[in-house]
Write a protein that binds this DNA or RNA. Structure first.
Lengths: 104, 104
DNA sequence: TCTGTAGTTCGATAATAATCGAACAAACGA
DNA sequence: TCGTTTGTTCGATTATTATCGAACTACAGA
């Protein structure tokens, strides 16, 4: 597939990260990626059509929250944990601790 | 003035807080409130008309980030630091450390 | 009571974002 | 090479949010 854009670590903006994390569905994606390490888009079915899921992955990717690598026909997504922890120490931890809550 | 709604501590939702903080102007308000302890809306002039400022204060208030108390004709705004620190330990600190950046 | 001050609310408009079906693209296996 | 799988991108629609002037409300002081 075409190359997916990822911001460099120094290009990651706090406001964009906060925005990306301010949606319950995206927060759920982040929580699942934290538990499972890496996952394909399809593996994290949130009951939405794939175009909607793709959109949310894109928001997370553009914000610098996740990194997507191509593996055959699949896209493996993982949190950019080390980079985020360095830029905003503690943020992911806070968010993941809470994210276990509900998702409608 | 009429009573302003404030969510109870246990009603504060992480996603709403993150959303409220995901705007550069609101982040700037939060940063100023942190430095100055408490401030009126007018004191934090961000170059917007007061109706716009009022809107952003409302978003912060509705999310549970700030508390507004009436003092004569003025509204004193302050961070709900203790409650936020208890609910999301470290979040404000992270956000304030970064918020010193730019605001367009 | 009249006036000024401080901020909210209303109403309209513009800008952003979410949603989802459909078309498309890339890689793989048969 | 032909289908299958996996996800992206397009396009249109809807929903949410920001913006700002104008009207409004409440309080305080002269």
């Amino acid at each position: 597939m075409r190359a997916l854009r990822h911001p460099k670590a120094e290009e990651i903006e706090l406001t964009r990260v906060l925005y990306a994390l301010s949606d319950p569905l995206r927060l759920d994606i982040v929580r699942q990626l934290d538990r499972e390490g890496e996952a394909t888009c399809a593996a994290l079915d949130c009951g939405r059509p794939k175009s909607s899921m793709s959109h949310h992955f894109r928001v997370l990717r553009d914000a610098g929250v996740i990194r997507t690598r191509t593996d055959g026909t699949a896209h493996m997504n993982g949190l950019r944990r080390a980079e985020l922890d360095r830029l905003f120490p503690g943020l992911l931890e806070i968010v993941l601790a809470q994210a276990a809550a509900k998702i409608q």
